[in-house]
Write a protein that binds this DNA or RNA. Structure first.
Lengths: 342, 342
DNA sequence: CTGAAAGCGCTTACAG
DNA sequence: CTGAAAGCGCTTACAG
C-alpha cells in the first residue's frame, strides 16, 4: 500500500507538505506542489479514508437511513438512492446505505453510524410525521437531514415536494374541468397508518381542496394488493354517487386502475378523469396520464446540499442560506386523462 | 465522544481488554467481560470506524459500483440495492454506494474505494461481458464480486440468474404450447450494444432455443421509448409471418406491450401468447403474466456471501465453498398469458 | 515557505 | 488471565 510517506519520499518533501497539498489548508509553493502532484500520480496514491477520518473527524460520507418499514417504498427508494448518489458525488461525498443488523435495536443502523462516526451526516428517507429518528440523532448531536417533511419543520433541515399543494392542485384541475364528484385515492393504508409524511400531507390536501372548492372529496386508501384495490374501486364505482374524477397518489397503481376501469367498460377520460400525483419522471408504463411528477432530481440535489451544509456546520446553520429547507411546488404535466364530465 | 479509554476506566480494566472483548480475538474471563459489557452499554460506546479500519485494515463495508451507464437500470438497481442492503446487514456489513466524482477518470469511484480503503470488497452491478472494472480491481489487488455473469467466469466470483436458460425455457414453454412462430423481444438496444451480460446471455438463449426447438426465433430489441417500441411491435405484427408468441426480456415494457396489442385488437392469450423474462417478484403492474421472475433476494444473498468471503480471504478463496459462484436456474410462474395458438 | 512531532482511537504482538 | 506499548496513516498546531 502506498502511503503519504512514499509520496513525500518520491517528491523529496516532508509528509506534512504532501498533506497540505492534498487538503489545501495552507499555501504551498508552485514547484513543490507540482512535484507532489507528480509523485501522487506516479504512485497512484489515494489517502487512506480511515486514517483521514480518524484524524480530521470528517468522513465525506452521507449515511442513508432506509424507511422503518419499506415494502412499497422500494421503487421510489431506488430512484432516490440513485438521485442522491449523483448529487452527493457532485459535492464530493459517498453514500453509505445503513443496513439493519441483528444487534440494532430499532435505530436501524443510524445510531451505529453516529456513534461510530461512519458518516458526517445522516439522511432520513421515508420520514414519518413524528419520526423518532430525528430526535434520536439530535440527542447524539449528530447532524440529520430529512427527505420528506416531518411535523416539526424546525427539527431538521428537509426537502420535499409540496404534497398537500399537489393534492389540492390535482383536485382543482379536475374541478376546473367541471367535475363535482371527486375522489382522492391516497397512498397505501400502511403508509397512512405509520404516518408517512407524504401520505398525511396528501390527505390534508384532499381535505383542504374540499373546503376550498366547496365540493365533497371522497378519500380512499390504495393497496399494494391489486385484488384488494380492485375490490375497493369496484365498490366505489358501483355506488350511487360514483365519482367522475380521480386523483391518485399511488402512481404505481395507475396502470392497474386504468385496466380495471377499461374492464368494467368505463372509458378514460370520457367517463372518468384521472390525475396521478407523484409519478416518476420516466415511466407510468408509457401511459399518457395527466400528472404531477415526483421531482426526484431536485429533491435529491436539495437534500444533498442540506446534508453537506449540516455536515460542515452543526445545528446552527439551519438558518444559513445553504441550510434552508426546500418545499418544491408541484407542476402539472398535461396528459390525456382529463376531460369534462359526460 | 466516548472512546475505548472511557469504557476501560469505567470497567476498571485496560483499553486492550475492552478491545479483546469487542473483537473476541482472545478469551476474557466471565467477570471482566460482564463488567466491560456493562460499561459499554452504560456509556453507549461504539468503536470509531475510522480508527478500527486504520488499525485492522477491515472496514466492514461493501462498495457498490453502479453500472457504467444506467438510465434503464434504475428500477432494477434499486431493488438490488435494497436486497444487497438486507443481505449485507445479516453478515455485519454496510453498503457504500460509490458516486462518480469529477476527478474520477472512468473508474467510477471503484479505484478511489480500493486505493483509499473505503471498503473491504467491491460489488459490480450491471456488469458487461468484457467489463474493464474487474481487471482494474484485480490489478490493484482489491477483491471484487460480480452481480451478473461476465464472459470470463473465473475472473471473479459472481452470482446471476441463468439468463440463457431463462430465454430457452420461456421459448420452450411457448413451443410446447404449440407455437411455431416465436419472437424474442430482448433488452433495450443500449444494453445490448454495451454488452450487458444479461442482454448478451438472453440473446444467446434465443439462438440456442431456435436450434434446440428446430424453429426460427426472430429477435427484436426493446426500447425505453414507448413510441419506438410500439412502432417496432406494429411492424412485427403487421408482417406476413407475424409471431404468435412473444418472450419478453424487458418486463417494464410488458404492460405497454399488452396495451399495444389490445389497441390493435389482438387478444392475449387468444391471438398471441406472452412470457415475461426477469420480472420483479412484486409487480408487473398487477398483471397475471406467465413469467420467469428475477430472484432478487437469492441473487443478493449470494453476492453478499461471496463478497464477505472475498473480503476475508483474498483471491485464493475463489475455490473455497463460500467463494463459489452461483448460477440460479430459472423458475417459471404460470400466469394467464399463454395458450395454444388460434 | 517548509519540517518535525504529537496524537486521533483503535488492535495486536510482546510481557508477565 | 490481563496490561503496557507500539503503531496503523493521516492532519495540524508548533517552530523556524
Amino acid at each position: 500500500m502506498v502511503t503519504i510517506k512514499d509520496v513525500a519520499a518520491t517528491a523529496g518533501v516532508a509528509p506534512s507538505t504532501v498533506s497540505y497539498v492534498l487538503t489545501g489548508s495552507r499555501r504551498v509553493s508552485e514547484p513543490t506542489r507540482t512535484a507532489v502532484r507528480a509523485a501522487i500520480d506516479a504512485l497512484g496514491y489515494h489517502p487512506n479514508a480511515g486514517a483521514r477520518s480518524l484524524r480530521s473527524t470528517r468522513t465525506h460520507v452521507i449515511a442513508l437511513a432506509l424507511p422503518l418499514s419499506s415494502s412499497g417504498y422500494l421503487p421510489v427508494g431506488g430512484r432516490f438512492m440513485h438521485g442522491l448518489s449523483l448529487a452527493a458525488g457532485d459535492l464530493g461525498y459517498d453514500l453509505l446505505l445503513l443496513t439493519v443488523r441483528e444487534d440494532d435495536a430499532g435505530a436501524h443502523g443510524l445510531e451505529r453510524a453516529a456513534r461510530g462516526k461512519l458518516a458526517d451526516v445522516a439522511v432520513i428517507m421515508g420520514v414519518e410525521m413524528e419520526d423518532p429518528r430525528i430526535g434520536a440523532m439530535d440527542a447524539l448531536g449528530f447532524p440529520v437531514v430529512v427527505l420528506g417533511r416531518p411535523a416539526d419543520e424546525d427539527a431538521a433541515p428537509w426537502a420535499d415536494l409540496d404534497w398537500e399543494e399537489a393534492a389540492v392542485a390535482s383536485l382543482r384541475l379536475l374541478h376546473e374541468a367541471g367535475h363535482r364528484r371527486l375522489c382522492f385515492l391516497s397512498t397505501v393504508g400502511k403508509d397512512i397508518a405509520s404516518g408517512r409524511s407524504y401520505s398525511v400531507r396528501g390527505l390534508r390536501g384532499a381535505e383542504r381542496a374540499a373546503t376550498e372548492l366547496g365540493v365533497p372529496v371522497r378519500t380512499l386508501p390504495s393497496s399494494e394488493d391489486s385484488a384488494v384495490l380492485h375490490r375497493r374501486l369496484g365498490a366505489l364505482f358501483d355506488s350511487d354517487d360514483a365519482p367522475t374524477a380521480l386523483a391518485v397518489q399511488h402512481p404505481a397503481a395507475v396502470p392497474g386502475i386504468l385496466r380495471h376501469l377499461a374492464e368494467r367498460g368505463t372509458e378514460v377520460p370520457r367517463d372518468v378523469s384521472l390525475v396521478a400525483v407523484g409519478s416518476f419522471p420516466e415511466d407510468l408504463g408509457g401511459l399518457d396520464v395527466t400528472r404531477i411528477e415526483l421531482p426526484v432530481g431536485r429533491m435529491s440535489s436539495a437534500v444533498a446540499r442540506l446534508a453537506v451544509a449540516a455536515a460542515h456546520g452543526g445545528p446552527a446553520v439551519h438558518d444559513a442560506p445553504d441550510g434552508r429547507s426546500e418545499l418544491i411546488p408541484p407542476e402539472i404535466t398535461r396528459g390525456g386523462t382529463v376531460a369534462p364530465p359526460a
